[in-house]
């Protein structure tokens, strides 16, 4: 595999989000606070099955979990 992050189970969007977070965190203090607001994500989501709504979960943690599972499969 050409991409290390792909082998780790990350999607391209996740990879971008992580690198964007790193850049934001390495900014100077005043700029950093402003920039980090742009990276916030508090979405919640629910899966639906047969017309029934499932449990509502935080999207952030669910994505992280899915990625780490993906990593387990690709190794």
């Amino acid at each position: 595999m050409a991409f290390a992050w792909k082998a780790a189970g990350l999607t391209y969007n996740r990879y971008l989000a992580v690198s964007a977070r790193v850049v934001r965190r390495s900014l100077k203090e005043d700029k950093r606070v402003q920039a980090e607001r742009r990276g916030e994500m508090e979405l919640r989501f629910a899966r639906w099955e047969n017309g029934k709504q499932g449990e509502q979960k935080s999207l952030e943690t669910a994505n992280q979990k899915a990625m780490s599972e993906g990593a387990g499969q690709s190794q």
């Binding site: 919640r44 989501f45 629910a46 639906w48």
Partner: peptide, 8 residues
């Protein structure tokens, strides 16, 4: 419906 998102 397969997915729904909220708090947007």
């Amino acid at each position: 419906i397969v997915l729904s998102f909220n708090s947007i």
